[in-house]
């Protein structure tokens, strides 16, 4: 039934051809896929793009073999707390970060793919607490927000080449809980976050200070917006937001992503581009890289958008083996990782 409903959209040639299946990997020992990601692995002078898969109790590293096949290199066993997500670290080799917890993140761990000290794969604890949001940053850094009954802590930690955590930097927290972070591209010292009362906050994160520079309202029509990407251009701060709880309207359809331009000097903003869910679809769990967004819809399909055009450019229907459960960009938007609940991961060229 679902496949029939999707047929009219797939007949649009652009959408049909814009995703090409490259290869597939299946973890026969896993039946509980939680997340998937890509990571660069450097060993013996060569660098390969590897795939990391997570199920509740373990995380596995896969490397490419000949003929589009994949081989499992190593599996980290994680103990009693379930894995919730893989946290990618941009432009970083041989390092994966994972978040563990029950209803919310209770623990963050580094997984080091290869340690030159003793030729081993190892893991170490980075942080514990009631962690509300976490993001991997450039230069082997990680930012997180966590809450106690009294206060919120926003902290950046960094990791040395040998896998040891360096001293952290504390950022000035806003009053409301921070739900998501995004680095401002091209501005090493600027970081933004979205909060539970729908504000964008901007920090300066240079070595000396963690000042909260500005708080700007997103608008009441889009509660609990999540920031995915931020960049500064012509004196404006552009932020890509998703709206998991926005209501469908006749004029706008069902909003999935918006690009909003903020003037940080005045805190005023204006919508730049708007991307809706395909007609008849609901629900999303999104991933944004550059100007491309991907999300799993409740129908079990994966949708891909060009955020600058505000258009859905590809729709991957549920396969014969079942619904899609995960959609993540690899290190670039040239490669989409599409995961099913049974541990199957398909790599698509976009």
């Amino acid at each position: 039934d679902v496949a029939e409903q999707l047929t009219p959209v797939l007949l649009d040639g652009l959408r049909e051809e814009s995703l090409q299946l490259v290869s597939k990997l299946k973890d026969s020992s896993s039946s509980c896929a939680v997340d998937v990601s890509a990571v660069w692995w450097e060993a013996a002078g060569s660098r390969e793009l590897c795939v990391v898969t997570a199920c509740e109790s373990s995380v596995s590293l896969w490397k490419p073999l000949a003929s589009d096949r994949w081989g499992k290199v190593y599996t980290w066993q994680l103990g009693e707390i379930p894995v919730i997500q893989i946290v990618p670290l941009p432009e970083t080799c041989n390092l994966v970060c994972i978040a563990l917890g029950d209803l919310e993140i209770g623990e963050i761990r580094w997984l080091l793919l290869y340690s030159s000290e003793n030729d081993s794969f190892k893991q170490s604890l980075v942080k514990t607490g009631n962690i509300k949001a976490v993001l991997g940053l450039k230069d082997r850094r990680l930012v997180s927000s966590s809450r106690t009954m009294q206060e919120q802590q926003v902290e950046i930690v960094s990791l040395s080449e040998t896998g040891r955590s360096k001293d952290g930097q504390t950022l000035m927290p806003p009053e409301e809980t921070v739900l998501a972070f995004a680095e401002v591209e091209g501005m090493r010292d600027a970081l933004v976050g979205t909060t539970a009362v729908n504000s964008i906050v901007v920090w300066s994160v240079n070595l000396k200070t963690g000042q909260l520079l500005k708080k700007m309202p997103v608008g009441y029509s889009y509660p609990a917006s999540i920031c995915h990407r931020a960049y500064s251009e012509s004196g404006l701060l552009f932020v890509v937001l998703s709206h998991p709880h926005a209501k469908e309207s006749e004029s706008c359809g069902n909003p999935a992503f918006r690009v909003i331009a903020f003037n940080p000097k005045t805190a005023r903003s204006t919508g730049v581009m708007f991307s809706s869910l395909p007609p008849g679809h609901a629900g999303r769990q999104g991933d944004v890289k550059d100007a491309s967004a991907a999300a799993v819809l409740t129908s079990g399909a994966i949708a891909v958008w060009d955020l600058l055009l505000g258009q859905c450019t590809a729709l991957l229907p549920p396969g014969p083996e079942g619904s899609w459960a995960l959609a993540r960009w690899a290190t670039t938007t040239a490669c989409l990782l599409a995961g099913q609940g049974d541990g199957t991961v398909c790599l698509y060229r976009y």
Partner: peptide, 23 residues
């Protein structure tokens, strides 16, 4: 969008806000 909608725009907004922020 026009400048009048968003107010006066500064290319150096980050440096200016950093200088204004209490340390």
């Amino acid at each position: 969008c026009s400048e009048s909608d968003l107010g006066p725009i500064s290319l150096n907004w980050f440096e200016e806000l950093s200088a204004e922020a209490p340390s």
